[in-house]
């Protein structure tokens, strides 16, 4: 079935099973592999992408429901000043080790800062609560949120 949507600001059409997930479509049909498959049940956040600006688990979203919507992945976000701000903050805070969760973390932090330019620690932890990281222990990722808020002042 032909499905049309916008991917990182570009219109795109794919011809796939409408129940195929957005994650599978991104990785296999669009060649965008930043979003990862972790748990495949909406708990780990490694597959996080933005649909119409909202954070979603791409592993649970059939491509049929993406029809006509705007998808943004890490590949698109990294081209923006805000995306670079979050990525640099994660690097500075050493919030990346194996890197598997990092694409999802960048998107979750981006959404957080769009909603709360000067977040509290509780807001940061709530925003990251659906993104699991088995390496860092989270503290450095929380630090990255504050670095991005400070260094990106005026951006958010």
């Amino acid at each position: 079935m032909k499905i049309e949507f916008t991917l990182n600001q570009q219109p795109i059409a794919v011809d796939v099973d409408p129940m195929q997930t957005l994650l599978m479509t991104l990785r296999q049909d669009c060649g965008l592999t930043a979003s990862k498959e972790g748990c495949n049940e909406g708990e780990c956040g490694a597959c996080s992408v933005l649909v119409n600006g909202q954070l979603v688990n791409a592993c649970l979203l059939p491509i049929a429901q993406v029809s006509g919507n705007h998808v943004q992945t890490l590949e698109g976000l990294r081209q923006t000043e805000k995306g670079q701000c979050v990525i640099n903050a994660l690097l500075e805070a050493k919030g990346v080790q194996c890197g598997f969760c990092s694409p999802g973390m960048v998107l979750a932090l981006y959404v957080l800062l769009e909603q709360h330019p000067q977040p509290t620690e509780q807001q940061v932890r709530t925003a990251l609560s659906g993104n699991l990281c088995r390496c860092t222990g989270y503290s450095m990722i929380v630090d990255a949120a504050f670095i991005a808020a400070t260094k990106g002042a005026g951006l958010w």
Partner: peptide
């Protein structure tokens, strides 16, 4: 569909079986 997709999933890279 957050419960349905988990209930009907098959395995990685296989489309959910509805």
């Amino acid at each position: 569909g957050t419960d349905l997709m988990v209930r009907h999933r098959v395995r990685p890279n296989i489309v959910a079986d509805f």
